[in-house]
Design a binder for these strands. Structure first.
Length: 1127
RNA sequence: GCCCUCGUGCUGAAACUGGCAGACAGGCUAGACUCAGGAUCUAGUGUCGUAAGACGUGGGGGUUCGAAUCCCCCCGAGGGCACCA
């Protein structure tokens, strides 16, 4: 009886489902083991052969652990919110819930066919309100918490409010601040806090909440109509769809993942994840330890040095004569108020020189302080009539760097003291220093190399840096403004694509070197990022390649301060020396120190002198949490007087409302704004954005532990029992997205004492991608004739398509004439009047459905029927066949290279597919799908079946002799049989333990080959064999198991132990090598000592032959391994 | 540019801790059986060589009695990060 996999597999799949064979309880005397798979997004395309790779591996492991006596949790569910379903909904108007349901049903059907041992009673769907109720609940916890730097964990916001009430807040330097607050704000006292309005209090608290609303630069994708998180953007375009993404300032919900940056980084040490994923996470978090250093803004060079024009000549020269006479006229006709004020401000009474009736550009200012670029205007009643004119004037003056403050005649007359105070305040304010700035004003830079501080030859600011406008000198203003505009309009993408292009401009301003006091010029360059560090760098061209390139490009100084330990191949003028090795030179108090010591000392001195502070920066940004989309979890927030409030737990879930269309409103609001009468308590507006795709998947591993709990996200007992995932199988594509967020949420829930673990998964394996192998056909695309006037093209398009076989495409010039001849023939056949001769042509490769191609030969009939336009297609063949081109690419619907597991299951059976996918190679490796070896696995299945079914070895299969397994002998097994079995048990156990599934399939093959050779039919051998193969090929194993007379499923059998005694040999066949080359073998008893073996070896005739009469220098005997004789 | 992973027959790969390189499959070659085969069975198959033998794990060097495996340099592939100071 040949193995009928169709019948057997169907039978057992139904049996497992009916008996809930894989149902798992939350308590057991057995030890627990949690095997989790990557959460699938149920796309419309269904599963392809790449998806099950990881699922098969984890299923083998889960089944193995069950046999090993563990209580195994192995669940499956769907990450069912997401963009594709919504895009489809927009196109078709169909509710995403419907498409999602259909897709899930299809996934389930496909999964069931492969025989996975999932506990389907624990299935979850993120789009199910009973699930997202708890996603919303976790969001509320995030909203209600802040990160306490002192205790280094998340705490309830009340503890922060208490601090504010008792001690207030000291501002940015206060260490209760979270790591990466982007918005700085002033401190306040406890009294001030209690005096704040609710709105102000909330605004302050928003700076601390772990889920917060703020204006941030976001990645806006106009085509998708939503913002995207950083890791959803690749190379300046959206990861899904590849649409352009722009930077935009928007009010957005964010999660303060940055608070956890350090813990996310440090805890990587303790988990057994692949190095590549850990490395990707480390890169993404991007910790750099360094220090801030302040460079004070020096009073700029004197007017003489800087420009020939004296500083006070601020007027527009073209109209200076007219302005001059006007200003003289005005001085004579001062109003009473103006006179009054003049007496108060003249002669530096307020600390700065103030001029009156001074010409600036095309205007005359009432009063002006050139030093501080402040204009003071005193307006009479007439002002009311010319308000618009004044506003224009203020605008223009501000454009060129002046601030304008206005007072009315009345206020000057009635309250001169107040006016003077206001003016004094404006003069003191650090907002404007520009040319004459000095004193407290400074540029703060961040550096990881404070040791190179004496090598600073300039300072570079990001174009967006707030100081840019203020410090730029008039002479440089135009150039700077042009540059800033250029830099701003350059999209992220251009900036990234064009890294090599060096751009920048001098501001005209200088800062003082903090140690030498030397003048250091301040430049602007877009190689400095506004969002990182302080948005400013101290440039050390000798030791930083980017600074070096900038300095070379603009001809700036390069000062070497580190002497490399060994002379460089290239001189110091050729490239930057960036290594952290060598001794400091030209560096005052750092001279002679090694780099590492110099860094320490530099930080110490900088801190001591109050020039800066040791500081750690992270590349990681807070995660933007809102999406302007419909198909996601509603954010459980409503607005009252513009202040966001979260719903209470009893009001959850906030169910996704129905909308008439899945598009933004006419006013650009997200689709949820379309929902009718969707208001909190019928009154307050809900938040209209929804959560991103990763929200639901950030905690799903917990929900599986207690999937139906409607009181909690999971019960205390469940989370304490299951702890965390023991084995997580997932793709590497989630390295910086999902896998970072799930770690973040886990740590947060741990901080709140809700779960007992700090990491979601102890071990993570990422299975490689199965790539597709695409096939191409080659269509003659365009044929140019001598007179190509478009008319010919039309004729061409009306002709049947001509497809040429691969060789014509590969060697186009060689086969030119043949192609043209065939083309002419088509012309003739279609009665086209003779066209002028062809001059050139283009051949276009097109993806063709791989299911119409076998061994790169196209099934022409199938192809013709594929599409209407190919019905009359013509083909230029080679050797009577149409040969297709091929390429390895990602498996995707659009590339027509998708192979679904269904067809494989249909043809070879689920067990065969399972074994074959494992047999392909190491799990982690990516490889293109090909079925070349599947017949080998298929044969193995047959051999395995026969091993249990026949005692006749003359190639005529015997029928099974009854249902109770009488064909199986109960006699004791031979030594050889036992050895084969136990050798296999040992290898399989080792293989599974190190996830080497491909070698275990090989070992099964070897085992079955040997047992077949031995004509083994002993129960003592065949029963354990069925068990060890059961994780890999569960259907056939169940069938054999039941035929062996068992009533219970093989799932809970006991995995056999390897008995070493069957493996021990009394002797070992030593390979004898000379100078490392194996020459012959010699068998010796295992008990022989080194010395005895050496003695024996030397007596051998063969040894003497290879010694060629020489005396060996040395004889190495490794017992039970090898003998090596050195001559 | 930096970081990670990897490089072994015609192909997928094995060799885990340094100890017989190429297990197990596929393919190919020859033969058997067969109405037929994309079925089954047998034998062969790293390269060069009739053979003895020599050479062989991307290339070069090193450590070692012994290296696919460890170390250094270079080349190539895949992935991650990317003016991150």
């Amino acid at each position: 009886m040949e193995y009928n996999f169709r019948e057997v597999e169907k039978k057992w799949q139904e049996h497992w489902a009916k008996n809930k064979t894989y149902k798992t309880e939350n308590s057991s005397s057995k030890p627990k083991y949690y095997v989790l798979d990557m959460f699938p997004y149920p796309s419309g395309a269904g599963l392809h052969v790449g998806h099950p790779l990881g699922y098969i591996a984890s299923d083998i492991f889960a089944r193995y652990k069950r046999l090993k006596g563990f209580n195994v949790l192995h669940p499956m569910g769907y990450d069912s919110f997401g963009l594709p379903a919504e895009q489809y909904a927009i196109q078709t108007g169909q509710h995403p819930e419907i498409t999602t349901k259909t897709n899930i049903a299809r996934y389930r059907e496909q999964l069931d066919k492969i025989g996975f041992s999932f506990d389907w009673d624990r299935e979850v769907r993120t789009s199910d309100p009973s699930y997202y109720k708890w996603t919303q609940w976790i969001f509320i916890q995030l909203f209600n918490c802040w990160y306490n730097k002192k205790t280094n964990k998340a705490e309830k916001i009340e503890t922060l409010v208490k601090t504010f009430e008792t001690t207030g807040f000291k501002g940015t330097e206060d260490d209760i601040l979270t790591g990466d607050l982007e918005v700085y704000h002033d401190g306040f006292t406890a009294e001030e806090w209690s005096g704040f309005s609710e709105a102000t209090k909330e605004q302050v608290l928003q700076q601390f909440r772990l889920a917060y609303l703020s204006d941030t630069m976001v990645n806006w994708c106009p085509q998708l109509g939503t913002v995207l998180a950083n890791e959803e953007v690749k190379d300046g375009v959206s990861e899904r769809g590849g649409y352009p993404v722009e930077r935009k300032l928007m009010k957005q919900w964010s999660l303060r993942i940055t608070a956890y940056a350090d813990r996310l980084l440090n805890d990587l040490e303790g988990i057994d994840w692949t190095e590549s994923i850990k490395e990707a996470q480390r890169n993404w978090i991007g910790k750099s330890v360094g220090t801030s250093i302040r460079f004070s803004l020096t009073p700029g060079p004197s007017p003489k040095e800087r420009d020939n024009t004296p500083g006070y000549q601020t007027a527009n020269k073209a109209i200076w004569e007219r302005l001059k006479s006007n200003s003289r006229e005005n001085r004579k006709n001062q109003t009473e108020a103006e006179e009054l004020l003049w007496e108060q401000v003249r002669d530096r009474k307020l600390g700065y020189k103030i001029r009156r009736q001074h010409a600036v550009d095309q205007f005359i200012a009432d009063f002006i302080c050139l030093e501080q670029k402040l204009i003071i205007e005193v307006d009479g009643e007439i002002h009311n009539y010319q308000q618009e004119y004044d506003e224009g004037r203020t605008y223009l003056l501000e454009e060129i760097g002046y601030r304008v403050i206005r007072f009315t005649n009345n206020s000057v007359k009635e309250n001169i003291n107040w006016v003077c105070d206001e003016i004094a305040k404006a003069l003191q304010s650090p907002l404007s220093f520009g040319e004459g700035a000095g004193g407290e004003a400074f540029v703060e830079v961040f550096t990881t190399r404070p040791d190179t501080v004496f090598g600073v030859s300039f300072v570079t600011l990001a174009p967006e840096h707030e100081l840019v406008a203020k410090i730029t000198t008039d002479a440089q203003r135009k150039a700077v403004e042009e540059y800033v505009t250029f830099a701003k309009n350059r999209s992220e993408r251009e900036r990234m694509a064009d890294v090599k292009k060096i751009t920048g401009v001098f501001t005209g301003a200088y800062v003082a070197h903090p140690f030498t006091g030397k003048k250091v010029p301040v430049w602007i360059g877009d190689y400095v990022l506004a969002g990182y560090g302080t948005g400013a760098v101290m440039a050390v061209p000798a030791h930083d390649s980017r600074d070096f390139a900038f300095a070379k490009h603009f001809g700036l100084d390069i000062t070497q301060v580190i002497l490399p330990p060994s002379p460089l191949e290239k001189g110091p003028g050729d490239e930057a020396y960036e290594a952290k090795e060598g001794k400091l030179v030209n560096s005052d108090f750092l001279d002679g120190l090694e780099v590492k010591a110099a860094i320490k000392k530099a930080i110490a001195v900088i801190e001591e002198k109050g020039l800066g502070k040791g500081k750690t920066n992270f590349r990681l940004r807070d995660a933007i949490f809102g999406r302007q989309r419909y198909w996601g979890e509603p954010i459980p927030v409503y607005y009252k007087d513009g202040i966001p409030h979260v719903l209470s737990e009893s009001e959850l879930p906030l169910v996704l409302p129905e909308v008439d269309k899945y598009l933004p409103t006419e006013t650009g609001e997200p689709p949820l704004a379309r929902a009718k009468d969707w208001k909190y308590k019928g009154e307050y507006e809900y938040e209209y954005s929804t959560m991103p795709g990763w929200a639901g998947s950030s905690w799903y591993f917990l929900r599986y532990m207690d999937a139906h709990n409607d009181k909690e996200f999971a019960s205390k007992e469940a989370v304490n029992y299951w702890q965390n995932v023991d084995l997580y199988m997932g793709g590497a594509e989630h390295a910086t997205g999902h896998l970072l967020y799930v770690r973040f949420w886990t740590k947060f829930l741990y901080d709140l004492g809700l779960i007992p673990v700090i990491e979601p998964a102890k071990k993570l394996i990422n299975q490689g991608m199965i790539q597709g192998r695409s096939n191409f056909v080659y269509r003659l695309g365009f044929v140019g004739h001598i007179e190509n006037d478009g008319k010919d093209n039309k004729i061409f398009e009306s002709l049947p398509s001509l497809f040429v076989s691969k060789k014509y495409f590969d060697n186009q010039t060689e086969y030119n004439t043949e192609i043209f001849a065939r083309h002419s023939k088509i012309l003739k056949e279609n009665n086209i009047a003779s066209l002028p001769p062809i001059r050139y042509h283009v051949i276009i490769p097109l993806h063709v459905d791989v299911n119409m191609v076998e061994n790169d030969v196209l099934n022409i009939e199938a192809f013709k029927n594929w599409r209407e336009e190919y019905k009359n297609a013509e083909f230029l063949l080679e050797d009577g066949k149409y040969i297709c081109g091929s390429e390895v690419e990602k498996m995707s619907k659009s590339k027509w290279n998708v192979v679904s597991p269904d067809s494989m299951v249909e043809q070879y059976g689920a067990d065969c597919l399972r074994l074959y996918e494992m047999f392909l190679g190491p799990l982690e490796l990516s490889k293109p799908w090909n079925t070349n070896g599947i017949t080998g696995v298929s044969n193995f299945m047959r051999k395995l079946w026969r091993l249990y079914h026949t005692t006749d070895w003359n190639n005529t299969p015997l029928l099974w002799r009854g249902a109770r397994g009488e064909a199986i002998s109960n006699e004791p097994a031979t030594k050889a049989e036992l050895k084969t079995l136990h050798k296999t048990i040992k290898k399989i156990t080792e293989d599974i333990d190190r996830f080497s599934f491909n070698t275990s399939v090989s070992n099964f093959m070897i085992c079955v080959n040997e047992l077949t050779e031995q004509k083994c039919n002993k129960r003592e051998i065949l029963e354990p064999l069925a068990i060890i193969i059961a994780p890999y090929a569960p259907h056939i194993a169940e069938e054999l198991w039941s035929k062996l007379g068992h009533r219970e499923s093989i799932t809970y059998a006991v995995f056999p132990e390897c008995k070493e005694e069957y493996l021990v040999e009394s002797s070992f066949n030593y390979p004898v090598s000379f100078n490392g080359k194996t020459r012959f073998f010699q068998e010796y008893d295992r008990s022989l000592s080194k010395e005895e073996i050496e003695k024996e070896i030397m007596t051998l005739e063969q040894t003497q032959k290879y010694l060629e009469g020489k005396t060996p220098k040395k004889v190495i005997v490794v017992p039970n391994k090898i003998v090596n004789i050195v001559i």
